[in-house]
């Protein structure tokens, strides 16, 4: 069974083609890492999968549990179990984390034909899930991401992932700007949430995060295409040699 199937996906922004034919299959329980130099299209791929309208899909198909992902509204993709941990989480002044999460959880439940969660259960869930990423009580009472430090924002992303229990999580450069302790906490959180039925796509520039979130498959994205796929050793090789050899290999 395949959870996510990407076939020859091309996408552009402002008329400039960024993704030039991506092919990728993710099965339940798998962890995929997508690595690549800056500007290779990693974050674009994440945005396109989540349904960001700033990117135009020009060709290709994406299916998610055998449904056409590309025709789904961003919120329906989320409700169906696709989660994006943003590289730069957005601040929403005045909207409390609690209200925000309650709305999101209930939307997902509605989508799955469930009743809204009771206040009591919700609070219990909130308490439990906060522990996953060692999240400060303070943070959940504040406005969404407002005034959070970089590390707190990333923790908050994983906390939301815990709350929403997605099938597929895409972590877009979740390690960027994180000190090693925070990185460990975030990675542990991701690992704790992992089940045999859930999958993860880890997008990263560096290998370090992969020490903690061990991938089954590593892809190298360069210039809008996946140019190399291998096991977790590929990431180590990259760390050692840098990206230049990939560029050379591709350009030959």
């Amino acid at each position: 069974m395949v959870m996510l199937k990407i076939n020859n996906l091309k996408a552009s922004v402002d008329g400039k083609e960024i993704l030039k034919g991506i092919n990728l299959e993710v099965k339940p329980g798998e962890v995929h890492a997508i690595m690549g130099p800056n500007g290779s299209g990693k974050s674009t791929l994440a945005s396109v999968l989540a349904g960001n309208e700033n990117f135009e899909v020009t060709e290709g198909e994406v299916s998610f549990f055998n449904k056409d992902l590309l025709v789904m509204a961003p919120e329906d993709r989320a409700r169906a179990g696709l989660f994006l941990s943003f590289q730069y989480p957005i601040e929403i002044p005045g909207v409390s984390m609690v209200n925000f999460m309650k709305a999101a959880v209930n939307e997902k439940r509605k989508y799955n034909g469930q009743e809204p969660i009771s206040a009591q259960d919700f609070l219990k869930m909130l308490r439990d899930k906060k522990k996953v990423v060692e999240m400060d009580d303070r943070l959940t009472s504040r406005s969404v991401n407002e005034g959070f430090s970089g590390g707190e924002k990333k923790k908050n992303e994983i906390f939301q992932m815990a709350m929403l229990e997605p099938k597929l999580s895409i972590l877009d450069e979740t390690d960027s700007g994180l000190d090693i302790d925070a990185l460990r906490i975030v990675a542990n959180g991701v690992n704790k949430l992992k089940t045999a039925n859930t999958s993860t796509i880890v997008i990263t520039h560096y290998q370090r995060l992969l020490d903690y979130i061990v991938p089954d498959v590593v892809h190298i994205l360069y210039n809008g295409r996946i140019v190399k796929t291998g096991g977790k050793d590929l990431a180590l090789e990259l760390e050692e040699k840098g990206y230049d050899w990939i560029k050379e290999e591709v350009n030959v």
């Binding site: 989540a50 349904g51 960001n52 309208e53 509204a73 961003p74 919120e75 993709r77 989320a78 409700r79 989660f83 994006l84 943003f86 989480p89 957005i90 929403i92 925000f100 709305a103 999101a104 939307e107 997902k108 989508y111 969404v144 939301q160 929403l164």
Partner: peptide, 8 residues
């Protein structure tokens, strides 16, 4: 978009 991505 951020809210959309959380299912809202």
């Amino acid at each position: 978009f951020y809210c959309n991505q959380r299912g809202i």
